[in-house]
Design a protein around this nucleic acid. Structure first.
Length: 432
RNA sequence: UCCCCGAUAGCUCAAUGGCAGAGCGGCUGGCUGUUAACCAGUAGGUUGGGGGUUCGAGCCCCUCUCGGGGAGCCA
């Protein structure tokens, strides 16, 4: 007979007939004539109870020698059990050993991050890593769902680009049939073109920064979602971001409870979050920082440490707005009421997580754009297509970029965002 | 590129300049309700590489390599 294969996540009722679970051995505890095998199949964990009286001496001997992470198919029945974290256990009748694993390097005890990073291909199997990457998948799905429901069309920007969007020092350069090309550090400029065609657009994919940053919030390859909205001003831009963040938080709380629990995430800071998020001008932020003896003057950057201070100061995410013109990218629109500042806003997540979104209203006047490009030393011929957008039906428009790993890292409450991407690339890690 | 910290058993870590150790993992045995199970036994080491000081270096000094954290920059 052919037994039915069941995914652990789909076990919601007992099965009196024999079924089969296909997975890997996470852990085994042997107590004389009874053994407890924790099986994982990628969708969940279940304890399989193996008793000598049920399978016989010979099988019991064989099955209790299965090593951690061996691939196995377990046949048996499913029974409710109040002692189980998922409410069910399997009574084992038979086990097929697909491959007996060699000594597995990751034990159930603690390990250092350097060791684990070198075996990331195996580390992915650990419960917390699984939980975090499941949340990543959920967040990515819900970003698309949110934007789709708000009338956005996904128009992917190219990853290979011929010219720099924001200076060349932080770009990965490569040879493109004898010409210089770069890995994209933002898809934004292309989204501005797309938004003029589709109204509301976004791109969502990998971006690359050759910055030699060695911090808990930096990767050289990371995923970014970049919405761009035609006929949208600075204020409406923030309102959309606010709605998106709330939707994503609520989605995680509602749909990823198991994973958040696995990560031992304290949920109270997340459940407290509600709109509207505070909007605080750069100038006022400087004052707050100076109350912490940061000695800030007009024009100074908000550094990583400053971000941590700010994001600990508020329980809610905070928009920092109205940055000095010189500190921001060339395409940002100056505030008509205060030309010293641009209509830009960075969103700081609370709990010390810092910046997760950078956004702005873009320059829509041809004249202003050309002036600004000139000031930033950008050649018009490299950006002719971009300039064109101000010549053929230019409109007020705004957009933002959110770093997926930073958001996921915040949701998961983790220390370092390298765990929020399956195979992180950092300044000194490109393997595995 | 710069600053700080680190490298000892497969892993996580101890060891006043004086015999290199523990827990986990491995292996052997015990236990029919374990939850990172527990108990007993056992194997496991060129203390990251090179040089120096010293009667004597895991420990002090120099240097290199690698790893971690941070600065600058950014999502």
């Amino acid at each position: 007979m052919m037994e039915k294969t069941i995914l652990i996540r789909n076990i919601r009722t007992p099965f009196e007939e024999t079924i089969v679970l296909k997975g890997w051995l996470h852990n085994i505890r042997i107590s004389g004539k009874i053994a407890f095998l924790i099986l994982r199949d990628g969708t969940g964990y279940i304890q399989c109870v193996l008793s000598k009286s049920a399978v016989g001496d010979e099988s019991f001997e064989k099955y209790t020698k299965i090593s951690q992470e061996s691939s196995i198919q377990v046949y048996g029945t499913i029974r409710e059990d109040k002692r189980s974290p998922i409410g069910f256990e399997m009574d084992v009748q038979k086990i097929d050993i697909i491959q007996q694993a060699e000594d597995y390097p990751i034990s159930l005890k603690e390990h250092g991050v350097g060791f684990l990073s070198n075996i990331r291909h195996l580390w992915l199997r650990s419960p917390k890593q699984r939980a975090l990457l499941v949340i990543r998948d959920l967040v990515a799905l819900k970003i698309r769902e949110f934007l789709h429901n708000e009338g956005f069309t996904c128009i992917d920007s190219p990853i290979l680009t011929g010219s720099a969007a924001e200076g060349t020092t932080t770009l990965f350069e490569l040879d493109y049939f004898g010409e210089k090309a770069f890995l994209s550090q933002t898809g934004q400029l292309y989204q501005e073109a797309a938004a003029m065609a589709f109204g509301r657009t976004y791109c969502f994919g990998p971006t690359f920064r050759a910055e030699k940053s060695k911090t808990r919030r930096h990767l050289t390859e990371f995923w970014m979602v970049e919405p761009e909205i035609a006929y949208c001003d600075f204020e409406e831009n923030m309102a959309i971001q606010e709605r998106m963040i709330l939707f994503l938080i609520h989605s995680c709380l509602e749909l990823a409870g198991t994973e958040l629990k696995t990560l031992e995430r304290d949920l109270s800071p997340l459940t407290k979050i509600k709109a509207p998020f505070p909007r605080v001008k750069y100038e006022e932020i400087l004052q707050i920082l100076n109350q912490h003896d940061r000695g800030k003057q007009w024009g100074d950057d908000i550094t990583g440490l400053d971000e941590t201070i700010i994001s600990n100061e508020f329980e809610q995410p905070v928009f920092i707005t109205h940055f000095p013109v010189e500190s921001k990218a060339f395409y940002m629109k100056a505030d008509p009421t205060d030309p010293r500042v641009v209509l830009a806003a960075d969103l700081m997540a609370p709990e010390g997580y810092g910046e997760i979104i950078g956004g702005s209203q873009r320059i829509d006047s041809l004249e202003d754009l050309l002036t600004k490009m000139n000031q930033y030393g950008l050649k018009q011929e490299d950006y002719q297509w971009y300039i064109d957008l101000r010549r053929f039906g230019s409109v007020p428009h705004s957009g933002y970029g959110m770093g997926l790993e930073r958001f996921v890292g915040w949701m998961g409450g983790i220390e370092h965002i390298r765990e929020a991407i399956p195979f992180p690339r950092t300044i000194e890690k490109i393997y595995p």
